[in-house]
Amino acid sequence: MKNTVHVQRAIHKMTQADLSVAIGVSRQTINSIEKNRYVPSTVLALKIAQLFKVAVEDVFELDEND
């Protein structure tokens, strides 16, 4: 699954640490999500989308391997 978390973060001028505090996970988890090493749960994906005020599909997208 591809994601644009780092783009959304840049738009909202947030660091990985800011985002991790805002959604209640560790900075390492944000780093893993951005590097496509970890696929977040639905709850976490919804939290991220809600924080950036966009639809989940705008942040997370299925790729050809899914």
Binding site: G24, V25, S26, R27, Q28, T29, Y38, V43, L44
Partner: peptide, 9 residues
């Protein structure tokens, strides 16, 4: 140290 859903998984 940083307990969250990723660590749990």
């Amino acid at each position: 140290k940083n307990e969250d859903e990723r660590i749990n998984k």
